[in-house]
Nucleic acid binder design. Structure first.
Lengths: 189, 189
DNA sequence: TGTAGCTATGCAACGAGTTGCACTGCAACC
DNA sequence: GGTTGCAGTGCAACTCGTTGCATAGCTACA
């Protein structure tokens, strides 16, 4: 009970094909929800069966036909209903954090290298978000309605990426034996 | 291919029963990985079949018998191997973020209330982490080995909770019409 | 005396998401 | 002329995790 609603929000913003939705889940929406195209098509089929969305087949030249989905009234009602229902706190799951915790049972230097790699990845993502913000929302104080809400979610991405980067820096500093002799060792067990 | 390794790390720290593991996944480890007891027992069974762990049945009085699991050499080797393998970037999934994005298709004030609720929840969690830190790691600069690594993960929890709280505050401020007329409205579509 | 709660283990059914594959046809590059 | 890439839709099999249920005996409280 999850991707459904992300799709509802996405379709409320703009009627789209499954293909297009899948691409959008790689970008803006994908910030806090991802989905492969297979998953999107599957769920879209179910939503269609439930009457939440309806498709219009559009013929194209030099391209395969496409099915443009849009919300039905039922879908719009469901979206409103879902928005009013309390949201569960989502479980954070991080392989990398588990690796950091277990570093002494392997090679802590290798784990540090891995953290550095993720740090670079998230730094790239942060820059991407910041560029987006500059381009899409040059004057945040003037925003209202769904544009304001989109910007707020982007702000969340930015804040969280910054937090991750700070944390990774702390971890790398602690795991890298430099001037400070924060020795990572074999002596346990 | 995930809970397995969290369990390996957990058992490397201390041999435990499934019941005990499940409880620990509600606490410290559960910070970045959660699991219900059913899931733990299931995976533990598979790991046993794979020869990663081995159980010793311990009889207790006034309590049911318990099976204490410990790592085998194969399990320890797998753990080392996994630590050396690169970790995927984990997909963040947040219902709440999707709700924020879709706020204008329902009642933005209700969404703001929901964000406030989550804010309080995370503030509580942050306090819990900070209390843990004070109690368990009074002198971080002296830490080495697995205690250092445990502390680093706790630091991650603290950093991320702070980030979330900051973000939620930003969202609540933007969604709450106060002196600044950041009107959330019906006028779209 | 009854009920709730803890320790302790586990099965069965389901739902969500991933991985791999299949098919069509155009455009662009080498 | 062949490969790569994009647009477009979809099925099948699988894994991971959740929900609901079952069992059993002890302790503590009302």
């Amino acid at each position: 009970m999850a991707l459904e609603h992300a799709i509802l929000v996405s379709l409320a913003e703009r009627a789209s094909t499954g293909y297009d939705l899948a691409r959008r889940f790689d970008k803006s929406i994908g910030q806090f929800w991802t989905a492969t195209h297979q998953q999107v098509y599957k769920v879209l089929g179910r939503m269609d069966a439930n009457g939440w969305v309806a498709a219009t087949v559009v013929a194209q030249d030099a391209r395969p036909d496409k099915k443009v989905y849009d919300l039905t009234d039922t879908g719009r009602a469901e979206l409103q209903d879902w928005l009013a229902r309390p949201a569960e706190r989502e479980a954070t799951r991080s392989d990398l954090a588990v690796k950091i915790r277990g570093a002494s049972y392997g090679d802590p230097a290798a784990v540090a290298a891995e953290v550095r790699r993720h740090r670079a990845d998230h730094a790239g993502r942060l820059e991407f978000y910041l560029a987006n913000e500059k381009r899409e929302f040059p004057d945040p104080s003037a925003l209202t309605g769904h544009r304001l809400h989109q910007w707020l979610v982007l702000r969340g991405g930015i804040t969280l990426e910054r937090g991750l980067i700070d944390w990774y820096d702390e971890v790398v500093a602690a795991l890298t034996p430099s001037s400070t002799p924060a020795r990572t060792s074999e002596e346990d067990r």
